[in-house]
Design a protein around this nucleic acid. Structure first.
Length: 578
RNA sequence: CAGGGGGUAGUUCAGGUGGCAGAACGCCGGAAUCGGGAUCCGGAGGUCGCGGGUUCAAAUCCCGCCCCCCUGACCA
């Protein structure tokens, strides 16, 4: 490719909306351009990188026997209503209507469509298992798209689905997928963790996330250096001791005290001069079955994912102040379990071990002190709904956990029969009985991977692409286009590399050397061949993007030059930033 | 969705007490130059987000709408 012909309008300045390096460099380096919030054009360079990632993902899927298909982006509402996700997933879906007013969605994922497909096409256990996948655009109306390709509203995803007649068969494919995902991580040179994860709105009962390490990542990971435990903070159970707060005291008399305008745990602790641990925090949620109260010890935080799982209700959300006021006639901040008899109460185990607790007074500007379990309030369900943080004990070995952040690239789920039952997708087993398919689903963020790689591979000048995903391997930089000998030498090297089957760009633009060097660094070509003043000695300079070292190589000897270049290519192994 | 900020040249941004539409970079033409976005001369480029209102006069004030960005995710 000739740079003079390449559609690659690089930018000197960072776009005003770029907050992170991958966003800035992908835009400045002419890989992508924003169309509207969370929606991008891929320019030639970006398309080349995307294709390389695409191909790696495709090859790894093909390797484990998954079969590529293509499903529609437009999906009818009826399928989503069958599984209840038209409402559950609702706000995240891009919805549209045809001329008859019939409802559709732009597919945010394809469980419904693929289950519908298999329900009609597979009828016997003899046809199972089957694994299919596609690589296609997905649409999600994110609350707040941001970070360039990391959280878009339109993005490229690989989604695979497997159908089985036994859990053992599902487990085989699940393990194959995990191996394939590890290979994708390795082939894209990403540093990553595999963590146990919450399955969220997708559902199911086992899932692992493949997380690429990055400080700006939105997934919080807890891991144990001692035993190797790795999990999402949303998923990590608390298996430590429960601290006893005042358990050796006498039960004192329940008393309502005035706490004017004192609402938060912090304020209450200050105002009453008590430890936060003595306060029981009461949070109200609204789910499918109405309002639910969740209790936890004052200084701890509630893990909404755990709570959703306990209640088996993915639609759960925090109640608004208005809803709370309407229900109890009491503003938020003064809500507590004493006298909250008509609401279902879920409490974290930590609440069990507080005597003479402080709770909301259920009357504006008051709190109760000396509230005691059973005597003053009841709990309908005990559960572990605590959010763990760094330093909390590892659930496996008890050592203090470490925290880090990452970008979720892959997610594998054992779905079980959630979708097949909801959609009556049955096959006939050996005994002639109808059984719902046992299913797995496996997602990979293809376009997001591009941003994740840049997050790990860049410096203050631009991107440092690993070879496997670089848009081109080499750039031949002709320093002075007015010098015939430089142009001729550059062309000769360019052609030699093309003939050797290499991916190469020759920078034949009539611009100053500074622009050429800076663009080469910004775009991130792994190897640069500079044709300039060293030509007087019959040499060119070769430099790898991840090093400042320049090697002088005789250019007249093409065989030797190509050999040296290929050797440098072999040894090019940029170091990730994390 | 809530709160905040913003929308002016291709980009990054000034102007905003109402009175001729601005800069830098980029772009086009030219000069000289050619190893890290260098220099000089000349030039093109705008429904000031959209619609309405107030006014002799609106980028500027008022109203409505659209879009973009940031923070948050109701942790009481």
């Amino acid at each position: 490719m000739r740079f003079s012909k390449l559609f690659a309008p690089t930018l000197k300045e960072a776009p005003s909306d770029a907050e992170i390096k991958s966003h800035e460099y992908l835009v400045r380096g002419a890989f992508i351009r924003k169309v509207t919030a969370g929606v991008f054009n891929y320019l030639p360079l970006g398309k080349r990188v995307l294709d390389k990632i695409w191909r790696i993902v495709k090859e790894e899927m093909d390797n484990i026997g998954a079969q590529e298909i293509l499903m529609p982006i437009i999906q009818p509402a009826e399928l989503w209503k069958m599984t209840g996700r038209w409402d559950d997933y609702g706000p995240t879906m891009m919805k549209l209507y045809d001329r008859h007013g019939r409802e559709f969605t732009l597919g945010p994922t394809h469980e419904e469509v693929v289950t519908f497909l298999m329900k009609n096409e597979l009828s016997s256990y003899k046809q199972l298992p089957v694994t299919v996948y596609q690589i296609a655009n997905k649409y999600r109306d994110e609350l707040r798209p941001r970070y360039g390709l990391l959280r878009g509203r339109e993005f490229v995803m690989k989604d695979a689905y497997s159908f089985h007649s036994s859990w053992e068969s599902l487990d085989e494919v699940y393990q194959d997928m995990r191996k394939a995902y590890k290979k994708i991580m390795e082939r894209t040179s990403l540093r990553y963790l595999v963590i146990e994860a919450a399955s969220g709105a997708i559902g199911g009962n086992q899932s692992h996330e493949f997380v690429s390490l990055a400080p700006i990542g939105e997934s919080n990971v807890l891991y144990c250096e001692k035993c190797g435990y790795q999990a999402s903070d949303e998923r990590t159970p608390y298996k430590g001791e429960y601290e006893k707060v005042g358990m050796d005291e006498e039960e004192k008399e329940l008393e309502r005290v005035a706490t004017p305008n004192v609402k938060t745990v912090e304020q209450v602790a200050d105002f009453l001069g008590v430890d936060k641990k003595r306060i029981v925090k009461s949070l109200l949620y609204v789910g499918r079955k109405g309002m639910v109260m969740a209790l936890i010890r004052g200084e701890l935080e509630i893990n909404e994912e755990k709570l959703k799982e306990v209640l088996k209700d993915q639609s759960l959300r925090m109640a608004t102040p208005e809803e709370v006021l309407e229900k109890f006639g009491v503003p938020i901040g003064f809500i507590g379990p004493v006298g909250a008899d008509d609401v279902y109460i879920v409490a974290d185990h930590s609440v069990k071990y507080i005597k003479n607790a402080v709770v909301g007074g259920m009357k504006e500007d008051t709190h109760y002190i000396n509230a005691n379990l059973d005597r003053d309030f009841k709990v309908d369900e005990w559960a572990d709904i605590r959010m763990l943080k760094e330093g909390d004990p590892c659930p496996v070995c008890g050592a203090p956990l470490k925290a880090t952040k990452g970008i979720e690239l892959g997610h594998v789920f054992k779905l079980g029969t959630k979708y097949s039952e909801a959609m009556k997708a049955y096959y006939m087993d050996e005994k002639g009985e109808l059984k719902p398919f046992i299913m797995g689903c496996y997602g990979w963020g293809v376009s997001r991977t591009m941003a994740a790689i840049v997050e790990q591979y860049h410096d203050d000048k631009g991107i440092i692409w690993p070879l496997s995903v670089a848009p081109f391997t080499y750039i031949v930089t002709v320093v002075n286009m007015n010098k015939k000998e430089q142009v001729e030498a550059g062309e000769k090297i360019y052609k030699a590399l093309l003939e050797a089957g290499e991916e190469v760009v020759i920078d034949d633009r009539q611009v100053t050397p500074g622009i050429k060097f800076n663009d080469a660094d910004l775009i991130g070509f792994p190897i640069r061949i500079t044709v300039g003043k060293a030509l007087k000695e019959g040499k060119v300079e070769v430099k790898m993007r991840n090093s400042s070292e320049r090697v002088k190589v005789d250019f007249e000897d093409e065989g030797k030059l190509v050999k040296v270049l290929k050797e440098m290519k072999e040894s090019y192994k940029p170091k990730p930033k994390v």
